[in-house]
Nucleic acid binder design. Structure first.
Lengths: 342, 342
DNA sequence: CTGAAAGCGCTAACAG
DNA sequence: CTGTTAGCGCTTTCAG
């Protein structure tokens, strides 16, 4: 059996009380330097590791936070996680990461598990199939610090970090129009997601402002966000079968962008006939056969900011009531400018 | 403050003892069906969630396992994680994932944290900078179930899962030779890694068996494994500056493969001059400008097997002493066969 | 079938 | 500066 050294063992060995040892290890001001040294040396000697479950049980703090994302295989999320961890590490917080695979039930389970593991807070991106938020609302109301990023929930009042979905979509469409495109299709992710809505609003606004009437038939939803390839392929087929074929496609998601490229390749649609711009944080984009224009979110930075916000809530003396939503710029890279240097 | 419902609350509300409630919830045989129903209904009503820290503290079990990988942004690992989770979910185990970013110190920290969080077991891929194993050896000796996958540690006797690094490397090189290549370079990851050694052995064996003397100058190590691009670029430059330039490159790692492609592109080396085959689990390989030949590990399957092995150790009645190493085939895809269908 | 009581390893009053 | 004591929420003997 795995039987670690406990604080009590140290106390016994050193003929001290458990509380003294506890305090010495936590560098309390009320312990003499000699005792501290004694304890710390012995602890190091026997490779003592405090048991966070016991500590957490007592102190209701665990110095660890939970990160919940839909999919680890998505570059955007893994980049954001690295951003979160870069701050967490510095502040002595551990991170516990889980993926929901965009399942509502998995999300509930994961969030509950984390809350009960006494994470001090949660950074979360909603699963695309989540439409009810009671599981989060409850935790939030009971005082669990939560920060949303990327896919946020309007209904819950806390810190949020998003990229400027509206503006960058707007800008992208504007540029397409300037380039001469008139029939711009929109390949969208799940319609209930905040990001989908924002990106669609940017798309529509740009068209409207440029006096181009937008046509419903040019908007295709792919709820799976590109993980079910057939869905994307069907959408593309339908688009290309239209009387008035699109001359450009704007893609609202990372995996969807890649899925779209794959569909175009399969359908042998030449990239000359079609301007493509999509949201993407894939780090291989410069190696693609069709180096598409793309909107790249500053994922690492978004992660960092999320963590900072979370710390602010966790370490607040008084409950925070005045939350705000931070919007981070995204960077647009146009295919013709895509160089090799990175 | 976040104040969840406790078992005691239920006991109080139902006028039962905590132990009865505990037993009822855990479906113990010694509790009447009526009581069980009463308790379960009430628990569901108030959305009771048992506190795993308290339970774990007492029972020394947590029904959760730790996964430690170097890098979440690496497709191979995220695929493997999904494999692990597919089994874990089914068996009611939670997973806690952490990345080490290939840092030895981060690895120690993460592993300690997990052990103390009372994970019931650990599935781990070594960081490339780890050369001492005492941190793992200790835990293993004290009885923490550990399964290694991909990058294993010979010195620790437990279950291990690897892909057939030797054989697939051997096969790949053999095919290159059959294709007429004679001067095959080897772009290797960190030399101390088990996978590097195995892949290099396959490389050398194939050459030797085909009576091609292998030249040291054709072997270049990139300890960062491709995350420091300059390293790869330098290696490629040196290779291409040789009197006897290589006519093929065999690449020992996923990120390294991509890094290599980037370097070749930057140096404007045409893919016609050079046959390339590399280990890679990137899921966009069919969309690359240069759709290289690649060796793809069955990451998901490897993850599943790892988890099954871990369960075997965790749930063993008697300590297991007879461990084995499972070798999983990898699949080789030759560039000329790369189609669009997937 | 149910309850009382002890204790997992640690922290936090409260004393001295 | 250090020790005593009482729990955190749960499981688990041991008694009914």
């Amino acid at each position: 059996m795995y039987k670690p050294i406990t604080l009590k063992d140290i106390a016994l060995a050193l003929d001290l009380s458990p509380s003294t040892v506890s305090r010495a290890l936590r560098d309390s001001y009320e312990i003499s330097n000699e005792t501290k040294k004694l304890v710390n040396d012995y602890a190091a000697l026997v490779n003592y590791q405090s048991n966070p479950m016991a500590a957490g049980l007592r102190s209701k703090k665990s110095k660890s936070i939970g990160i919940v994302v839909p999919d680890l295989a998505n570059s955007f999320f893994s980049q954001a996680i690295s951003g979160i961890e870069s701050i967490a590490d510095k502040e002595g917080y551990h991170t516990i990461i889980s993926q929901t695979k965009d399942s509502y039930h998995k999300e509930i389970e994961v969030v509950n598990h984390m809350a009960n593991r006494s994470v001090d807070g949660l950074i979360i991106t909603m699963s695309s199939n989540t439409t009810a938020y009671t599981h989060l609302q409850q935790m939030h109301k009971s005082g669990l610090p939560i920060v949303f990023f990327d896919r946020i929930v309007e209904e819950i009042d806390t810190y949020k970090v998003i990229c400027n979905n509206f503006e960058s979509s707007y800008k992208a469409i504007l540029q397409l129009i300037e380039n001469g495109n008139r029939s711009i299709a929109f390949l969208a992710t799940a319609p209930q997601l905040s990001i989908t809505k924002e990106r669609m609003n940017g798309y529509r606004a740009a068209l409207t402002d440029q006096h181009i009437t937008w046509r419903d038939e040019l908007i295709k939803f792919c709820p799976s966000g590109g993980s079910e390839h057939g869905e994307t392929e069907l959408a593309i087929k339908q688009l290309m079968a239209l009387d008035q074929r699109p001359d450009a496609i704007f893609i609202a998601g990372d995996r969807l962008s890649m899925s779209c490229l794959r569909a175009l390749k399969k359908l042998q649609i030449n990239s000359d006939e079609l301007s493509i711009i999509g949201f993407s944080n894939v780090d291989l984009i410069d190696l693609l056969e069709t180096p598409i224009s793309h909107i790249r979110q500053r994922a690492f930075e978004m992660g960092q900011i999320s963590m900072k916000m979370l710390l602010k809530i966790i370490e607040a003396k008084y409950p925070i009531t005045d939350f705000d939503t931070k919007t981070i710029d995204a960077d647009i890279f146009w295919a013709e400018h895509l160089g090799l240097d990175r």
